[in-house]
Structure formats: C-alpha cells, structure tokens
Design a protein around this nucleic acid. Sequence first.
DNA 1: CAATCAACCTGGGTGC
DNA 2: TGCACCCAGGTTGATT
Length: 287
Amino acid sequence: MEAGRRLHSCVKISPMPELPEVETIKRDIEKSLIGHKILGVWTDWAKALKPEPEVFKKAIVGKKFKSVGRRAKLLIFHVDSVPLVAHLKLSGRLLYRDQKEPTDKFTHVVLKLDREKELRFADLRKFGWMKVLKDEDELDAVLGEFGIEPFTADFTLENFSKVLQSKKTAIKPLLMDQSQIAGVGNIYADESLWCAMIHPLRSANSLSEKEVNELFTCVQDSLQSGIKDRGTSVDMYLDLFGERGEHEKNLKIFRRDGSPCSRCGSEVKKTRVGGRGTHFCPKCQLK
DNA sequence: CAATCAACCTGGGTGC
DNA sequence: TGCACCCAGGTTGATT
C-alpha cells in the first residue's frame, strides 16, 4: 500500500476534464477569447480537426468568436454563425497565449488570432478534437444526445430519480453515462457517491428515496465545489491560462486509497467498476 | 436491449 | 540499460 501511494503520487498523466474543468475553461473564454478574429489554423494532427482540416479552416478563418457555451463536457462555440464544438477527452488542454510564448510538443492545433494571440489545443493522448458543424440543426442533434444537465432547469430531483429508477445497472457507471446524466466523470462520480454514502456497485434502482435525495444533492455539491476551486489537476488539467486547479486538495475520496477516510477513519480502498479505477470507503459506503 | 470490451494514444511505471 | 508489458481514462463502435 505504501507502494500504492508512491505510485499514485508519481503519476503525471491523468487530466480528466469533467464538467467543472470544462466550465472553468468556458468562463475564462468568455473573458478572453470572445471577440477575437481567427486569422489562420495550424495543425500537425489531422484527426483533431473535423470533419477534416481543410473544411475546418475554410469554415472559420476570417470569422470572429461570438459566444461560448458548455453542455456536459463539450465546449460549444459560435464563430460568427458557425457552430464549433470541442471535446478535451482525457488529456486535452485549451490555452490562450501570446504568439511569442513557446509551445510545447503536445500542441497539435493552433488558431492564430488577431492582437498577437493564439488559442492552442494541446493533447498528450490525442483523443480530443474540434469540430465544425453544418448548422444549428446539427448542433441541436449533437446536444440532444446528452442526458439531464446539472445546474439547469432540467436537473430536478424528479428527473434524477426517474433516471435512477429506470436502470438496474450499477450506480457509478450510470452517473458517468453521458446520455443519462451529463458532465460527471470518474473523479466526481467517486466524490458524489462517497458524499452520499452509497457503494459504487449498488444497483441504481435499488436506492431508497432518501439515498436518491442525498445523491441528487451530492452530485451538485461535488460539481459546484470543483467549479469553485477552478477544477481538479490530477495531474495534467490546466485552465485556459495554463494554471492548475485547486480542487485536488479538497478531494475526499478520489485517489486517496491507503489513506484514512476523512469521515470515519477507515482505510480508503480502490477497486474496479465498469473497467475504471474506483475509490470508496468500505465502512461508509456499504454494498 | 444491456453489458463487455477493444480501439483510439502517450508516457511513465514495473518486472525481467 | 533495455525492453515488453501494464495502466490511466472519455467516448465510440463492435461484439456477446
């Protein structure tokens, strides 16, 4: 276990932009990128630009960033009237930088802007992408694939309860199922379940009314707490200006295996649920 | 229909 | 020192 702790403290690659991280980037973009004109597009990784680099370039060069939004973990831009969406997946970063600042080797897309600025897309694992959409109908179709969105009018206890009651799958994979509940990834799923004292393998439709209530509150609190700290940097997420988020020190359960549970003192355990690393307190979160 | 799983990637760890 | 192998995880798409 000592080895386990040491291993985790050395892991340098686990960004995981989830709702709070993407929301942080979105808010910073509102204050910086909006209004900039796109002068050119550079890439060394064709797959990052959809539908394909030439179409992507043609659609946006000469136009201005007008708005930015977020749905689940997706960033939504409008470049003039052209919808553009971006997904950071596991290791993507968006950076707003002066042209003269050096780029790192993970930078695979650069949007050259006016006023000597750049929007850089860096991605160690190259899973992320930016995509130009045809029109608002296509955007509606993309956004319609997601489930209930936290912090919107749709995210009611009634709707949350309906989602849980309709599935007998384990609660953790359901929390992370973007088509059901939008924006929750591995970190905030673990945090939410610890907060609500629910074991990650509990069948979703087996939760009591009280547990559903608790989880409903905990999901929102965990996400809100992450936003307040400008996201979690474990260890690669950086915000639009290249700064780390502060939420890592406020994590209650994620990657704390081997340490005492901050609620009951029992040793935090790590296991696998749905193929993903899952952290829980065996005393607080009974099966 | 639901659960499972490889594939997409890279770097950093371990074990031999 | 080197090298094969494993792991991290969001999402898609194929398979069971």
